[in-house]
Amino acid sequence: MTSTPGTSPLAEAPRTLAGGSGLATLLTDPRHALVSLDYDGTLSPIVNRPSDAVPAPGALSALARLAERVGSVTIITGRPVEALLALARFTDEPGLRSMVILGQYGLQRWDASTGTITSPEPLPGVAAVRAALPKLLQDAPAGTVVEDKGHALVVHVRRTADPDVSLASLTPALTSLARDNGLEAAPGKRVLELRPPGHDKGRALRDHMAELGARSVLFAGDDLGDLPAFDAVDELRAAGTPGLTVCSDGPEVPGKLRERADLVVPGPEGVVALLRLLADRLA
């Protein structure tokens, strides 16, 4: 079922039987459910500058209400944990004391219950790519910027005159640079991320599910980087664990993500509405 602004994300059943089963299990056994969400484009609107991506209105309170009723609420993001904590201010919401953030696609972890962050040392290739990028990008279109995540580097072209053309022109050289230094080049919404290989949201989700012993899962996302998490939900369902995939829709959302989702809601405001409805159902 595809929702439109002004309609309830749960006004109808999810458009797949598997998604319906995932939702039903979450609602009947919430204490063993994992609700996991991407951040940018899912809990926060897409903006030109990553540093401006604050949570959508009502997002933190909706998360907190749901966190009181389900087994675990977890954010899985490509952002560094420290940057996300400073931006989203999750620690200001008392109801999120049990939340977990898996940052950098699971390389980093923050547990609200302890306030601790665990993080490995960056791969050597990250420093090499960092040093090489200024020269490689010296003739890049105006508006091209680099976001340094510590464990990865992201080339943003959203502020160039023609983002799609800019990304296409830069991708071959950036892909070669990543490969030559033991990294991978992962595309997203008008970005290319040069990051450690083998780490994605699917792996982070599977590992966290196993750690929790969760019996159902909801995952919500909006970009190509969320497809591995959709794959993980499919694998879990095939092994007998019910799950529900949610697309936070918008003009830049890849068609393949929208097509794969069990439930499509209208952007971050639709995600917030969905979280509130789930909390109401479980009250």
Score class of each variant (00 low, 15 high):
residue 206 R to C: 08
residue 227 L to M: 15
residue 156 H to D: 11
residue 190 R to W: 08
residue 139 D to T: 13
residue 74 T to W: 02
residue 177 L to S: 04
residue 37 L to M: 13
residue 230 F to T: 07
residue 8 S to K: 13
residue 99 M to C: 06
residue 211 E to P: 01
residue 26 L to N: 04
residue 272 V to Y: 05
residue 268 P to Y: 02
residue 129 V to D: 07
residue 71 G to L: 09
residue 15 R to S: 12
residue 120 P to F: 09
residue 62 A to T: 02
residue 275 L to S: 04
residue 12 E to P: 03
residue 56 A to T: 00
residue 29 D to W: 01
residue 132 A to K: 09
residue 99 M to P: 02
residue 263 L to M: 10
residue 185 A to Q: 13
residue 266 P to V: 05
residue 72 S to V: 02
residue 248 S to T: 04
residue 17 L to H: 08
residue 33 A to H: 04
residue 112 A to S: 14
residue 175 T to W: 04
residue 255 G to Q: 14
residue 275 L to G: 00
residue 256 K to E: 15
residue 154 V to I: 11
residue 161 A to G: 07
residue 111 D to L: 12
residue 131 A to W: 07
residue 238 A to Q: 15
residue 127 A to P: 08
residue 270 G to R: 10
residue 99 M to F: 07
residue 175 T to H: 08
residue 154 V to F: 04
residue 123 L to C: 01
residue 127 A to T: 11
residue 5 P to C: 11
residue 12 E to A: 15
residue 236 L to Q: 13
residue 251 P to L: 10
residue 257 L to D: 02
residue 95 G to I: 13
residue 229 A to P: 09
residue 135 K to N: 04
residue 185 A to E: 12
residue 4 T to H: 13
residue 204 A to T: 07
residue 158 R to C: 01
residue 281 R to F: 04
residue 111 D to M: 03
residue 138 Q to E: 14
residue 95 G to W: 12
residue 112 A to F: 06
residue 33 A to F: 01
residue 102 L to M: 05
residue 79 R to K: 10
residue 90 F to M: 07
residue 257 L to Y: 03
residue 128 A to M: 13
residue 21 S to T: 14
residue 88 A to T: 07
residue 199 H to P: 01
residue 268 P to Q: 04
residue 224 L to S: 09
residue 243 G to W: 13
residue 27 L to A: 11
residue 235 E to S: 14
residue 246 V to I: 15
residue 8 S to D: 15
residue 77 T to I: 10
residue 24 A to F: 01
residue 44 S to C: 14
residue 103 G to V: 07
residue 25 T to R: 15
residue 198 G to T: 03
residue 233 V to N: 06
residue 151 H to M: 05
residue 282 L to M: 08
residue 234 D to S: 14
residue 235 E to H: 14
residue 124 P to V: 08
residue 29 D to K: 06
residue 145 V to S: 08
residue 201 K to W: 05
residue 68 E to H: 13
residue 59 A to W: 01
residue 170 L to A: 05
residue 1 M to V: 11
residue 279 A to C: 12
residue 249 D to G: 06
residue 43 L to V: 01
residue 33 A to T: 11
residue 86 A to N: 00
residue 283 A to V: 03
residue 2 T to K: 13
residue 191 V to E: 00
residue 222 D to C: 09
residue 151 H to T: 00
residue 160 T to K: 01
residue 246 V to R: 03
residue 233 V to T: 10
residue 74 T to Q: 09
residue 59 A to F: 04
residue 20 G to D: 11
residue 147 E to R: 00
residue 86 A to H: 00
residue 51 S to L: 04
residue 63 L to P: 00
residue 192 L to T: 00
residue 105 Y to D: 14
residue 126 V to D: 07
residue 220 A to V: 09
residue 127 A to Y: 08
residue 85 L to P: 00
residue 262 D to S: 13
residue 30 P to E: 09
residue 206 R to A: 15
